[in-house]
Design a protein around this nucleic acid. Structure first.
Length: 350
DNA sequence: GAAGCGTGGCT
DNA sequence: TAGCCAAGCTT
């Protein structure tokens, strides 16, 4: 019987996706080794995030903080601002914790084993395996959404996720080779991303079409099954945008934990079914005609917007005025940036 | 095990 | 368009 991993590696040699942070199969064969810092950074950014969305952020982070020592020495606010727009902001907080841990506890060198990597903040089973395999060429098994899908189809598993995850992990582990494990880890994910796709898998050109049980059974497109998720509710809130006569904006850093934790934003009410007015300072507030709409993972948000122009000696009850010269809407999470965009458009019209 | 946690693209 | 989906982790 043909070695499945060898078939996949042969396919990968011809079809590997090109990514800025990736050391491709040819370069790897030429002896070029990946930079563990760059690999770790890419894997954290790629958690639940598309390659297209990550590309610019990864380049920007590497240009500002070329080494883990640079990142460990960065200001928290600078890192959060650079992460703004990418989502799942706990990743950015853990990114900094992790960089500082690597410098303080590991002498500035990432641990090179699965077990060592797993101890780091923000590094779970997937990322530990990915960094161990890709950066250190260890025979660890990566199990992401792609691999779950490929395994469920290869073995025609109809048990829904997440209950089937242990079984899928075992099946993936059984296939992991000792030769070229770093390339193999990327190959199986590339296969899921480009051939064994969620909607219309390209089974006809799949290097694993012969052994695939779901292809034989005609069930590939309906796998993996997932337990249904409940529909997302809608919450409401009021955002307060105050601007001083000198142009400064009233912003506040949100609490470290919870939604948009540690990010900059406009003062708002609680987000509930029926929010109560809670302005951050006494002012002549005007209601904007349009509200900001944004959808998070588990609820829709509709923010009505209040705008006020205030005196330069105004003292807010919460938040801090940020000078117009240093304020950048790009440093806001998307929900907050939408609020700014609506205010900005309104001010331009008047 | 389940819930909380972003965003943008695609169908 | 409303939902699904993407190289998950933490609590």
């Amino acid at each position: 019987m043909r070695d499945l991993s060898a078939d996949l590696l042969e396919w990968y040699d011809r079809h590997a996706r090109v990514m800025p942070w990736r050391v491709g199969p040819q370069d790897r064969k030429a002896g070029i080794k990946p930079d563990p810092y760059a690999v770790w950074l890419s894997e954290v950014m790629l958690q639940q995030t598309t390659v297209a969305a990550v590309r610019d952020y990864h380049r920007n982070f590497l240009s500002i903080w070329p080494t883990v020592q640079d990142l460990a020495a960065a200001d928290d606010a600078a890192v959060m601002a650079a992460w703004a727009g990418l989502g799942y902001y706990a990743r950015a907080r853990n990114l900094l914790k992790c960089a500082r841990t690597v410098v303080s506890d590991w002498g500035g060198a990432f641990p090179d084993t699965y077990e060592g990597l797993l101890t780091l903040p923000g590094v779970g089973p997937y990322t530990a395996a990915a960094v161990a395999a890709i950066a250190f060429d260890r025979a660890e098994t990566v199990v992401d959404g792609n691999v779950e899908r490929v395994m469920a189809r290869m073995h025609d598993i109809h048990t829904p996720l997440p209950a089937s995850k242990p079984q899928l992990t075992q099946l993936a582990s059984d296939l992991t080779p000792n030769t070229r494990p770093g390339d193999y880890a990327q190959a199986v994910m590339d296969l899921g991303a480009t051939i064994c796709t969620p909607r219309s898998p390209a089974c006809g050109i799949c290097p694993w079409r012969e052994p695939c049980k779901a292809r034989a059974a005609g069930t590939a497109a309906m796998l993996p099954k997932k337990t249904p998720k409940k529909k997302t509710p809608t919450r409401f809130g009021i955002a307060y945008v105050a601007q001083r006569e000198d142009g400064a904006w009233l912003l506040e850093t949100r609490p470290e934990t919870g939604l948009l934790g540690g990010m900059l934003g406009w003062p708002t009410t609680e987000w509930t079914d029926a929010p109560q007015a809670d302005p951050p300072l006494i002012a002549d507030w005007k209601t904007l005609s349009e509200e900001a709409r944004h959808t998070f993972t588990h609820f829709h948000l509709r923010l009505s917007i209040q705008y006020a122009r205030v005196a330069t000696d105004a003292v807010p009850m919460r938040g801090d005025f940020v000078p117009a010269s240093t304020f950048s809407p790009a440093s806001l999470p998307t929900a907050m940036r939408k609020v700014f965009d609506l205010v900005d458009a309104t001010l331009r019209d008047n």
